[in-house]
Amino acid sequence: MRVNKAQFEAMFPPGTEGGRRTIIRAVDVKKVYRMGAIETQALRGVTVDIYEGEYLSIMGPSGSGKSTLFNMIGGLAKPTAGKVYIDQVDIAQLDHNELAWLRCRKIGYVFQTYNLIRVMTCLENVMLPMSFAGLDSEEAREKAMYILKLVGLAHRPLHKPGELSGGQQQRCALARALANSPDIVLADEPTANLDQHTGEEMIELFATLRDELGVTIISATHDLKMLKRSDRILWIEDGQIVRAAHPKDVDFSSGDFH
Protein backbone atom coordinates (compact mmCIF):
# COMPACT_ATOMS: atom_id res chain seq x y z
CA MET A 1 0.00 0.00 0.00
CA ARG A 2 1.22 3.43 -0.81
CA VAL A 3 1.58 6.04 1.87
CA ASN A 4 -0.47 9.07 0.95
CA LYS A 5 0.46 12.65 1.57
CA ALA A 6 -1.53 13.08 4.80
CA GLN A 7 -0.08 9.94 6.33
CA PHE A 8 3.36 11.01 5.23
CA GLU A 9 3.09 14.40 6.83
CA ALA A 10 1.72 12.90 10.02
CA MET A 11 4.74 10.64 10.17
CA PHE A 12 7.22 13.29 9.14
CA PRO A 13 6.35 16.93 9.64
CA PRO A 14 7.27 18.98 6.59
CA GLY A 15 10.78 20.38 6.51
CA THR A 16 11.06 23.69 8.21
CA GLU A 17 13.79 25.31 6.21
CA GLY A 18 12.01 28.30 4.74
CA GLY A 19 8.81 26.25 4.69
CA ARG A 20 9.96 24.63 1.50
CA ARG A 21 8.60 21.41 0.18
CA THR A 22 10.64 18.28 0.67
CA ILE A 23 11.28 16.61 -2.67
CA ILE A 24 13.48 13.77 -1.44
CA ARG A 25 13.49 12.36 2.03
CA ALA A 26 15.80 9.61 3.18
CA VAL A 27 14.98 8.03 6.53
CA ASP A 28 17.67 5.96 8.25
CA VAL A 29 18.93 4.54 4.99
CA LYS A 30 21.42 1.73 5.37
CA LYS A 31 23.25 -0.16 2.70
CA VAL A 32 25.33 -3.24 3.23
CA TYR A 33 27.20 -4.80 0.33
CA ARG A 34 27.77 -8.48 0.75
CA MET A 35 30.45 -10.15 -1.25
CA GLY A 36 30.79 -13.69 -0.01
CA ALA A 37 31.81 -13.46 3.62
CA ILE A 38 32.84 -9.81 3.38
CA GLU A 39 30.32 -7.18 4.38
CA THR A 40 30.80 -3.53 3.59
CA GLN A 41 28.66 -1.02 5.42
CA ALA A 42 28.46 1.64 2.75
CA LEU A 43 25.68 3.61 4.49
CA ARG A 44 25.07 3.39 8.22
CA GLY A 45 21.77 5.16 8.58
CA VAL A 46 21.44 8.36 6.59
CA THR A 47 18.50 10.63 7.29
CA VAL A 48 18.16 13.75 5.17
CA ASP A 49 15.53 16.03 3.68
CA ILE A 50 16.25 17.59 0.34
CA TYR A 51 14.09 20.53 -0.63
CA GLU A 52 12.57 21.40 -3.91
CA GLY A 53 14.73 23.80 -5.89
CA GLU A 54 17.70 23.31 -3.63
CA TYR A 55 21.29 23.23 -4.79
CA LEU A 56 22.82 20.64 -2.48
CA SER A 57 26.48 19.64 -2.41
CA ILE A 58 27.73 16.48 -0.79
CA MET A 59 31.33 16.15 0.31
CA GLY A 60 33.21 13.26 1.72
CA PRO A 61 36.36 11.25 1.34
CA SER A 62 36.65 8.51 -1.24
CA GLY A 63 34.69 5.44 -0.20
CA SER A 64 32.52 7.36 2.26
CA GLY A 65 29.33 6.32 0.45
CA LYS A 66 28.44 9.29 -1.76
CA SER A 67 27.75 7.26 -4.89
CA THR A 68 25.88 4.69 -2.85
CA LEU A 69 23.66 7.40 -1.39
CA PHE A 70 22.99 8.70 -4.89
CA ASN A 71 21.93 5.24 -6.03
CA MET A 72 19.54 4.97 -3.09
CA ILE A 73 17.89 8.36 -3.41
CA GLY A 74 17.79 8.05 -7.18
CA GLY A 75 15.84 4.80 -7.12
CA LEU A 76 18.64 2.85 -8.77
CA ALA A 77 19.21 0.42 -5.90
CA LYS A 78 17.29 -0.87 -2.92
CA PRO A 79 18.48 0.17 0.54
CA THR A 80 19.20 -2.68 2.94
CA ALA A 81 17.11 -0.81 5.51
CA GLY A 82 15.36 2.53 5.73
CA LYS A 83 13.08 4.38 3.39
CA VAL A 84 13.41 6.82 0.54
CA TYR A 85 10.55 9.11 -0.39
CA ILE A 86 10.47 11.03 -3.62
CA ASP A 87 7.63 13.52 -3.88
CA GLN A 88 6.29 11.97 -0.68
CA VAL A 89 5.98 8.56 -2.21
CA ASP A 90 7.87 5.66 -0.70
CA ILE A 91 9.75 4.41 -3.74
CA ALA A 92 9.91 0.88 -2.36
CA GLN A 93 6.18 0.74 -3.10
CA LEU A 94 6.44 1.76 -6.72
CA ASP A 95 6.01 -0.88 -9.38
CA HIS A 96 8.61 -1.21 -12.11
CA ASN A 97 6.59 0.92 -14.51
CA GLU A 98 6.48 3.79 -12.06
CA LEU A 99 10.15 3.40 -11.19
CA ALA A 100 11.02 3.53 -14.88
CA TRP A 101 8.95 6.67 -15.25
CA LEU A 102 10.72 8.19 -12.26
CA ARG A 103 14.16 7.39 -13.66
CA CYS A 104 13.20 8.62 -17.07
CA ARG A 105 11.29 11.84 -16.37
CA LYS A 106 11.76 12.91 -12.82
CA ILE A 107 15.47 12.44 -12.24
CA GLY A 108 18.48 13.11 -14.41
CA TYR A 109 21.63 11.22 -13.48
CA VAL A 110 25.22 12.17 -14.13
CA PHE A 111 27.22 9.10 -13.16
CA GLN A 112 30.67 9.27 -11.72
CA THR A 113 31.78 6.91 -14.49
CA TYR A 114 29.49 8.67 -17.02
CA ASN A 115 28.03 5.34 -18.23
CA LEU A 116 27.66 6.62 -21.73
CA ILE A 117 26.75 3.93 -24.21
CA ARG A 118 29.98 3.30 -26.04
CA VAL A 119 28.53 2.27 -29.35
CA MET A 120 26.24 5.27 -29.68
CA THR A 121 27.21 8.76 -30.71
CA CYS A 122 27.03 11.62 -28.28
CA LEU A 123 23.79 12.77 -29.88
CA GLU A 124 22.26 9.29 -29.73
CA ASN A 125 23.19 9.01 -26.07
CA VAL A 126 21.33 12.23 -25.34
CA MET A 127 18.37 11.13 -27.47
CA LEU A 128 18.07 7.74 -25.74
CA PRO A 129 16.13 8.85 -22.63
CA MET A 130 13.89 10.93 -24.89
CA SER A 131 13.01 7.89 -26.96
CA PHE A 132 12.22 6.01 -23.73
CA ALA A 133 9.88 8.87 -22.89
CA GLY A 134 8.13 8.32 -26.21
CA LEU A 135 9.42 11.33 -28.11
CA ASP A 136 9.65 10.82 -31.85
CA SER A 137 13.15 10.95 -33.21
CA GLU A 138 12.90 14.26 -35.09
CA GLU A 139 11.71 16.08 -32.00
CA ALA A 140 14.30 14.29 -29.90
CA ARG A 141 17.13 15.20 -32.27
CA GLU A 142 16.21 18.86 -32.17
CA LYS A 143 15.94 18.95 -28.40
CA ALA A 144 19.16 16.97 -27.96
CA MET A 145 21.06 19.39 -30.19
CA TYR A 146 19.73 22.27 -28.14
CA ILE A 147 20.90 20.68 -24.89
CA LEU A 148 24.29 19.83 -26.39
CA LYS A 149 24.62 23.50 -27.28
CA LEU A 150 23.85 24.37 -23.65
CA VAL A 151 26.71 22.22 -22.40
CA GLY A 152 29.05 23.39 -25.16
CA LEU A 153 29.20 20.16 -27.11
CA ALA A 154 27.25 21.16 -30.20
CA HIS A 155 30.30 20.80 -32.40
CA ARG A 156 30.78 17.10 -31.55
CA PRO A 157 27.36 15.45 -31.80
CA LEU A 158 28.44 12.55 -33.98
CA HIS A 159 31.46 11.46 -32.01
CA LYS A 160 31.29 8.29 -29.97
CA PRO A 161 32.22 8.58 -26.28
CA GLY A 162 35.54 6.88 -26.97
CA GLU A 163 36.43 9.70 -29.32
CA LEU A 164 35.71 12.40 -26.76
CA SER A 165 37.94 13.76 -24.02
CA GLY A 166 37.07 13.08 -20.39
CA GLY A 167 35.54 16.51 -19.94
CA GLN A 168 33.56 16.19 -23.15
CA GLN A 169 32.21 12.83 -22.03
CA GLN A 170 31.23 14.43 -18.74
CA ARG A 171 29.35 17.16 -20.57
CA CYS A 172 27.68 14.57 -22.77
CA ALA A 173 26.58 12.72 -19.62
CA LEU A 174 25.23 15.99 -18.23
CA ALA A 175 23.35 16.66 -21.46
CA ARG A 176 21.82 13.21 -21.23
CA ALA A 177 20.78 13.87 -17.63
CA LEU A 178 18.91 16.97 -18.78
CA ALA A 179 17.25 15.20 -21.71
CA ASN A 180 13.76 14.88 -20.27
CA SER A 181 13.78 18.14 -18.29
CA PRO A 182 14.03 16.40 -14.91
CA ASP A 183 12.88 17.96 -11.63
CA ILE A 184 15.93 16.55 -9.89
CA VAL A 185 19.49 16.31 -11.16
CA LEU A 186 21.73 13.85 -9.34
CA ALA A 187 25.29 14.57 -10.36
CA ASP A 188 28.22 12.53 -9.07
CA GLU A 189 31.35 14.70 -9.36
CA PRO A 190 30.05 16.54 -12.42
CA THR A 191 32.98 18.90 -12.72
CA ALA A 192 35.80 16.53 -11.83
CA ASN A 193 37.17 16.37 -15.35
CA LEU A 194 36.41 19.87 -16.49
CA ASP A 195 38.86 22.72 -16.80
CA GLN A 196 38.40 25.82 -14.70
CA HIS A 197 36.41 27.68 -17.30
CA THR A 198 34.10 24.85 -18.42
CA GLY A 199 33.56 23.88 -14.82
CA GLU A 200 32.37 27.36 -14.02
CA GLU A 201 30.05 27.24 -16.99
CA MET A 202 28.51 24.02 -15.70
CA ILE A 203 28.08 25.52 -12.25
CA GLU A 204 26.32 28.49 -13.84
CA LEU A 205 24.15 26.12 -15.85
CA PHE A 206 23.12 24.34 -12.65
CA ALA A 207 22.39 27.65 -10.97
CA THR A 208 20.28 28.73 -13.93
CA LEU A 209 18.34 25.47 -13.91
CA ARG A 210 17.62 25.96 -10.25
CA ASP A 211 16.70 29.61 -10.51
CA GLU A 212 14.70 29.55 -13.71
CA LEU A 213 13.11 26.11 -13.60
CA GLY A 214 13.21 25.26 -9.93
CA VAL A 215 15.26 22.14 -10.61
CA THR A 216 16.68 20.45 -7.53
CA ILE A 217 20.42 19.88 -7.95
CA ILE A 218 22.23 17.31 -5.83
CA SER A 219 25.89 16.84 -6.54
CA ALA A 220 28.85 15.15 -4.98
CA THR A 221 31.76 17.49 -5.39
CA HIS A 222 35.02 18.80 -4.06
CA ASP A 223 34.97 21.78 -6.39
CA LEU A 224 35.29 24.95 -4.27
CA LYS A 225 33.40 27.09 -6.72
CA MET A 226 30.56 24.65 -6.77
CA LEU A 227 30.49 24.37 -3.00
CA LYS A 228 30.35 28.13 -2.65
CA ARG A 229 27.52 28.39 -5.14
CA SER A 230 25.35 25.76 -3.43
CA ASP A 231 22.57 26.31 -0.89
CA ARG A 232 23.72 23.64 1.52
CA ILE A 233 26.70 21.38 2.00
CA LEU A 234 26.51 17.93 3.59
CA TRP A 235 29.59 16.10 4.83
CA ILE A 236 29.46 12.35 4.73
CA GLU A 237 32.02 10.14 6.38
CA ASP A 238 32.07 6.38 6.66
CA GLY A 239 28.45 6.12 5.60
CA GLN A 240 27.07 8.78 7.90
CA ILE A 241 26.23 12.43 7.58
CA VAL A 242 28.54 14.20 9.99
CA ARG A 243 27.88 17.84 9.25
CA ALA A 244 25.55 20.12 7.33
CA ALA A 245 26.15 23.80 6.73
CA HIS A 246 25.40 26.75 4.51
CA PRO A 247 28.46 27.73 2.47
CA LYS A 248 28.55 31.20 4.05
CA ASP A 249 29.14 29.56 7.41
CA VAL A 250 32.08 27.56 6.13
CA ASP A 251 35.62 28.87 6.26
CA PHE A 252 36.88 27.67 2.89
CA SER A 253 40.30 29.23 3.33
CA SER A 254 41.23 27.29 6.46
CA GLY A 255 41.01 23.88 4.88
CA ASP A 256 39.07 22.60 7.90
CA PHE A 257 36.11 22.05 5.68
CA HIS A 258 37.50 18.81 4.33
Binding site: K5, R21, E98, G214
Partner: peptide, 27 residues
Protein backbone atom coordinates in the same frame (compact mmCIF):
# COMPACT_ATOMS: atom_id res chain seq x y z
CA UNK B 1 6.33 23.78 -10.01
CA UNK B 2 3.37 21.96 -8.56
CA UNK B 3 3.41 18.79 -6.53
CA UNK B 4 3.69 16.12 -9.15
CA UNK B 5 2.50 12.60 -9.07
CA UNK B 6 4.49 9.64 -10.18
CA UNK B 7 3.06 8.16 -13.32
CA UNK B 8 3.70 5.02 -15.25
CA UNK B 9 6.31 4.84 -17.95
CA UNK B 10 4.83 4.55 -21.43
CA UNK B 11 5.16 1.26 -23.23
CA UNK B 12 6.96 1.92 -26.47
CA UNK B 13 5.68 0.42 -29.72
CA UNK B 14 7.59 -2.60 -31.04
CA UNK B 15 8.83 -0.48 -33.94
CA UNK B 16 10.99 1.50 -31.50
CA UNK B 17 12.62 -1.70 -30.25
CA UNK B 18 13.08 -2.77 -33.85
CA UNK B 19 14.74 0.54 -34.64
CA UNK B 20 17.08 0.13 -31.68
CA UNK B 21 17.95 -3.39 -32.87
CA UNK B 22 18.69 -2.33 -36.43
CA UNK B 23 20.77 0.57 -35.19
CA UNK B 24 22.58 -1.77 -32.80
CA UNK B 25 23.34 -4.29 -35.52
CA UNK B 26 24.58 -1.54 -37.81
CA UNK B 27 26.77 0.05 -35.15
Amino acid sequence: MTASVIRKQVRLPVSVAFGVVMQGIRI
